[in-house]
Design a protein around this nucleic acid. Structure first.
Lengths: 244, 244
DNA sequence: AAAACTCCACTTGTCAGGCAACTTGGTTAT
DNA sequence: ATAACCAAGTTGCCTGACAAGTGGAGTTTT
């Protein structure tokens, strides 16, 4: 049976075989993205799918349900399920499952830099006094952490987060939070040696200071450039830290 | 029954009630994001959920399956389903279902601008001759369309797409394509009067020319600024076009 | 008494069969 | 010819059941 073969091949992180619905969903997704199933075309009936892939109908329903959830197909009771127009979907899905490729990490970091830099620019352009107060508090907290001899990573994150929150754009917030977490997660799993980074904290703080001053001055250009410099340096530190 | 009540209240675009699994998934998602279900905590068993919400177990499975798909919960056969740590998830989901709010459109446009501007900057920094040739072809195609008296929207999209593809970053490509489609989709549904835009095509082309020249000159700063100017003008044209 | 082992209740994963609601196309009646 | 109608096909949902895996309680062994 086709489904069984792919199951025994691919296994997840815990060494467990992915569910039948997962593999089937992946298969159907591939059928669509490869163009074997054109937009507007009707999918085979659930019974046919069940028969072809050697699974039960509930499994088929679960798999198709996921595609519906992701906006790839639309179903009408009594009529069938149809491949959605590629632009009609209202949901965007970003799956960064495997950092196996070094290139993927770089792509993620690039996107993160784009979002953060733009957000910093926006905040410099239009921030309230309350925003500024919050950012200043975070900056001071970072300094306090450094003075205590800590690495101050949490305070670092909080500082950037305050700047991004000030934009009032939830997409900036959610996306940068996700990307940031992915990168930090990668760092942690790659090598758990934060000691070397501690010495760089004051250097980081200096860059933070520059960003903050540009925001206070309401100078978007300067804020962007300061943020870009900071992020590029962070990437360089990351490379150093990973011992490349 | 609780589920039935919410079904009759919320209806989708076509006036059809959302599926039971959808409403249940939404409910559980809410339970998690609100913090009523803490990270690491075990979800009620499928049978309990089925009983509480008055649906059958397959429906519960479908709903929970979606949360698993989105990385919000992890399940272990025999043990149960557990709320995932926020940050362990490798999938990011962006749902731009409703443009009901004007603010949401602005947020989308802001994110699109951030991605496009950064991508343009990257391309100026590092592009091959082949990339350049493609971009030039698209630029010429746009001019040809204008000369034919057409609006050239397709050629416009293709031009930007070529620049973004040149970054070699699939996230830039996918995200900007999605956002662009959403915005254009909104424009189309809001008012289908492209006649007014046709006269602006030559103005758009002038901005494209500036972007292209900055890329050729390998001047990232200038490329970014040209792209930002272009996008801001586009947003302004959009506002004018919508008759705000 | 502590550790290891065994067994069993419980939970998720999957299957089978069936009924209700809806769509569609052809058929029949007007 | 047109309209009403009907029947087959399809999705939405349910019940009941078994297999596979987990975890703890009870039992045995050291």
């Amino acid at each position: 049976m086709v489904a069984d073969k792919s199951r025994s091949e691919q296994r997840d992180i815990l060494g467990r075989a992915p569910s039948l619905a997962d593999t089937l969903a992946l298969r159907l997704r591939d059928e669509i993205s490869s163009g074997r199933l054109q937009a507007g075309e009707r999918l085979p009936t659930e019974q046919q799918l069940a028969l072809t892939y050697g699974v039960s109908r509930p499994i088929v329903r679960e798999a198709v349900g996921r595609l519906k959830h992701d906006g790839l197909v639309l179903s009408r009771q009594g009529a069938g399920a149809f491949v959605a127009e590629p632009g009609s979907s209202s949901v965007f899905r970003l799956d960064v499952a495997d950092f196996s490729d070094k290139a993927e990490l770089r792509h993620i970091v690039e996107l993160l830099m784009a979002v953060e830099a733009s957000a910093t620019e926006h905040t410099a352009e239009r921030h309230s006094e309350a925003d500024l107060a919050t950012i200043r508090t975070r900056l001071d907290a970072m300094q306090a952490a450094i003075d205590r001899g800590e690495s101050g990573v949490d305070e670092d994150v909080a500082f950037h987060r305050a700047i991004i929150d000030a934009t009032g754009n939830p997409f900036f917030r959610d996306l940068s939070e996700f990307l940031d977490r992915r990168v930090r997660n990668f760092i942690r799993t790659a090598r758990a040696n934060t000691a070397r980074l501690a010495g760089m904290a004051q250097m980081v703080q200096g860059e933070h200071q520059a960003i903050f001053e540009a925001i206070v001055a309401r100078d978007p250009q300067k804020a962007r450039m300061a943020a870009e410099t900071h992020l590029k340096n962070a990437a360089a530190r990351l490379a150093l830290y990973l011992g490349r």
